[in-house]
């Protein structure tokens, strides 16, 4: 088992955002988390690499407990890629330097090797020719692809995607999704929060439906889409497919 989340709780003030989340992820699996906004999906992702500290519960990456106070969190984060909704590319660095920074400063690679590796990852997301561009000179879709390359360069065991296409113009969503589809096919382990039901349906090994801080239902896409066990799942899927479309 690559990732195991056990009884995760997180509270902001009086509001309990996560109320006992448990699930796991096998190596090479892609799981998609869906659910109404404000149900703790992003908080859950951020708890997994402790960008947000959970209040209670345990998380394991392989046999290492991420939530242990003794865990070397920087070392763990280097093994978990994170793709943000609004990209968060380093504004002052070129695409190449964005991808290279972690390689040089976290992994300690010499500049030459870091450059080669970074260029390879940029090529993988189709942006070899944009290596010298600053984020502001790239479209949203290109920025998100650079941020995927930045995550990939670290050789992560797992990549977390936090609504990676939600900040994009509709015509740019496809290029990011296609990179993600390729990644999933290549065997990368992925945990994806998204409203893209087409992606969820065609790529996910399993879909997790979350609402109000708990997992309501989880299962293979066909089962969830065709025979949801829970009425809330059915209602959410019906509403979201009306909005975003389900085929694709």
């Amino acid at each position: 088992m690559l990732l195991r989340v056990e009884d995760l709780h997180k509270r902001y003030g009086r509001e309990e955002v996560l109320r006992g989340i448990s699930f796991s992820l096998e190596k090479g699996e892609t799981k998609v988390i869906i659910g109404p906004s404000g149900t703790g999906k992003s908080t859950l992702l951020r708890c997994i690499n402790r960008l947000t500290e959970p209040d209670r519960g345990r998380i394991f990456l392989e046999d290492v407990e991420i939530t242990s106070p003794k865990a070397d969190i920087n070392k763990i984060r280097a093994q978990i890629g994170f793709v943000f909704q609004d990209f968060n590319l380093f504004t002052h660095l070129t695409a190449l330097d964005n991808v290279r920074l972690g390689l040089m400063r976290v992994k300690g690679l010499p500049k030459k090797q870091a450059t080669e590796r970074a260029l390879r990852e940029l090529a993988r997301v189709g942006l070899a020719d944009k290596a010298k561009a600053y984020p502001a000179e790239l479209s949203g879709g290109q920025q998100q692809r650079v941020s995927i390359a930045r995550a990939l360069a670290m050789d992560p065991k797992l990549i977390l995607f936090d609504e990676p296409t939600s900040a994009l113009d509709p015509e740019l969503i496809g290029e990011v999704l296609s990179v993600m589809v390729d990644l999933a096919k290549s065997g990368m382990t992925m945990l994806v929060v998204t409203h893209e039901m087409g992606f969820a349906r065609s790529v996910a090994d399993e879909i997790i439906f979350m609402e109000k801080g708990v997992i309501v239902e989880q299962g293979p896409p066909e089962q969830l889409f065709k025979h949801p066990k829970h009425p809330r799942t059915a209602e959410f899927l019906r509403r979201i497919t009306e909005l975003y479309g389900g085929e694709g």
């Binding site: 960008l51 070392k75 609004d86 380093f90 920074l101 972690g102």
Partner: peptide, 30 residues
Amino acid sequence: VKSGQMLAARAIGLTRLQALRYVILPQALR
């Protein structure tokens, strides 16, 4: 400097000090 910059820096495994040195300060000094 946008708060997402620190998050992204920490997410790739940079320490707080490294994030300051390589991400936050180069922007702030400009």
